[in-house]
């Protein structure tokens, strides 16, 4: 009896130790992985220097490109509608200034700033005026659609 008891002491101790060690190792590895992840994020942030002209410039150019694409989508909508005489007639009915705004923006692809310079108003006014024309045209076309050809 006593022999068995003694026999198991070292085995028990070893099992006890192994469990504790494996447990500790797992926790340690998790902490280590988190630490490495945080360090990587930090290094990334350090590399992104917001005073870097190159980065800022490229971001600016990309943004402008996106803006042009958005306008192209509207342009295509108009092109599609041009197939119908309704739109042509609606455009003909616009005032001179409204026509100018529309064509300069759509065909001339002028920015609102350039548009503003041309009309001697400020860019925000140019933007608002342009979209007013667009809305006006849309409304007219809706009316036409409701009343048929």
């Amino acid at each position: 009896m006593k022999e068995q008891y003694n026999d198991s002491i070292q085995n028990r101790f070893t099992a006890y130790l192994v469990a504790a060690v494996v447990h500790r190792r797992i926790r340690y590895m998790e902490q280590k992985r988190k630490r490495i992840d945080h360090e990587r994020i930090l290094m990334d942030l350090l590399e992104k220097n917001y005073l870097d002209f190159d980065t800022q410039f490229h971001a600016y150019v990309s943004e402008r490109e996106n803006a042009v694409v958005r306008d192209w989508v509207q342009f295509r909508e108009i092109l599609d509608l041009l197939g119908s005489r309704k739109l042509v007639r609606a455009v003909e009915r616009l005032k001179e200034r409204e026509k100018t705004l529309l064509f300069a923006r759509v065909f001339g692809e002028l920015s609102f700033t350039e548009l503003a310079e041309m009309l001697d108003i400020n860019p925000k006014q140019a933007e608002m005026a342009y979209y007013y024309v667009v809305r006006k045209l849309r409304k007219e076309l809706e009316v036409w659609m409701r009343h048929g050809q």
């Binding site: 006890y16 130790l17 504790a20 060690v21 500790r24 340690y28």
Partner: peptide, 13 residues
């Protein structure tokens, strides 16, 4: 570092 931690674990056991 891990070795140090495990040594501490042994002492604790």
């Amino acid at each position: 570092d891990l070795y140090q931690e495990l040594s501490a674990t042994l002492i604790s056991c």
